[in-house]
Nucleic acid binder design. Sequence first.
DNA 1: TAGATTGTTAATCGATTAACAATC
DNA 2: TAGATTGTTAATCGATTAACAATC
Lengths: 216, 216
Amino acid sequence: MNKKQSIKISNAVIRRLPKYRRYLEDLLNKKIYRISSKDLSELIGFTASQIRQDLNNFGGFGQQGYGYNVKELYNEIGKILGLDSAYIVILVGVGNLGQALANYAHFYKTGFIVNAMFDINPKLIGLRINGVEVMDVEYLEEYLSQNDIDIGIICTNKESAQDIATRMCKGGVKGIWNFAPIDISVFGNTILESVHLSDSIHTLTYYINHPEDYNA
Amino acid sequence: MNKKQSIKISNAVIRRLPKYRRYLEDLLNKKIYRISSKDLSELIGFTASQIRQDLNNFGGFGQQGYGYNVKELYNEIGKILGLDSAYIVILVGVGNLGQALANYAHFYKTGFIVNAMFDINPKLIGLRINGVEVMDVEYLEEYLSQNDIDIGIICTNKESAQDIATRMCKGGVKGIWNFAPIDISVFGNTILESVHLSDSIHTLTYYINHPEDYNA
DNA sequence: TAGATTGTTAATCGATTAACAATC
DNA sequence: TAGATTGTTAATCGATTAACAATC
């Protein structure tokens, strides 16, 4: 077995990849096609050593004496992140945040296609958002059994979130993007990624009140 | 100088505090008033040792042989996070996400009061959202000079984000909660907390494509 | 008191940084 | 070739876990 394949990539490394990709995109937009780990370090704020370590988890993308080819590295990281294919998305909970995500134009442009939306509120059911009709969440199972869904977004309240997650896992959804302010459990092969907005703002208020702990 | 006051609390610890608080709130709702680090460990998924280490950064909240008083610990963590006072908030960029955050009722209930909203789009200026009028972003400086603002939320596109952040810092905003998909810089005493939604979903797609790296 | 559980020190683990040989 | 910069190993640092004395 290949050593590279057998060693698990740490979460810390993986969470830095999207950031590398953002900076490489900026460089491409500025028509900069070549960069050293040292120069990238100054832009992105990680050490050059960390950049080289991170990238070498996935292969030798650089060239001694030259640096990295921006376009190539951008594409490679995109592939590593799975951004070379599109994702079929459904969304449950069409409140303000759910609608905002459904409407997020950038989302479509970058390969996330919202194919269906569900809610429990009769006032919302039947509504069309961005050309997609809101269905009664009662039909979630039926929909999942008939469609191959990559990602399920949960924008319900915290009371419903685990129930919806369970039904998504049973329905074979590959990943759940959770915005409900609660920790949910997944099973089977489903991956969970949560965005805890309240935790984020509570971290902000902590630092506002304890600036001595803050690293700018 | 007190040892506790002179040693910086690590970011890792601080980011766990909101989660402790969420679980303690759940316990209170279930009328559970006492808990050991061992039992909390099983609920929350951190080791009992880590829980005790974390809490002892802020003082001895427990009692040997007994455990922790849930209500007291909940209140103490709330105070540590600065949630015993209210925050005056302004929001710049009243797109879908901005409106969703402005409308987020829970936000008000928990002490975040949106006092003003700004946008550059004439179609939005003058609109009332949740009783607050959207103003021309041109008046941001003037508004900041006349009002003491705790938190500025940035929901603009990435092109405008740094400019808005700079103006907020100059205007003496205590903290910035950034949703624009770019890394912005702050200066003065302003604290920055960013939510990178695109980084989050790209992490999800990574794990969907590399389940062997995923820790459930 | 005896049992339970904290607070805290010490040990371990994992992630980051430094160093440098390899090589373009 | 000489200079630059990677890839990779070794050293360091910081965070997590284990252990246990203190004590309720």
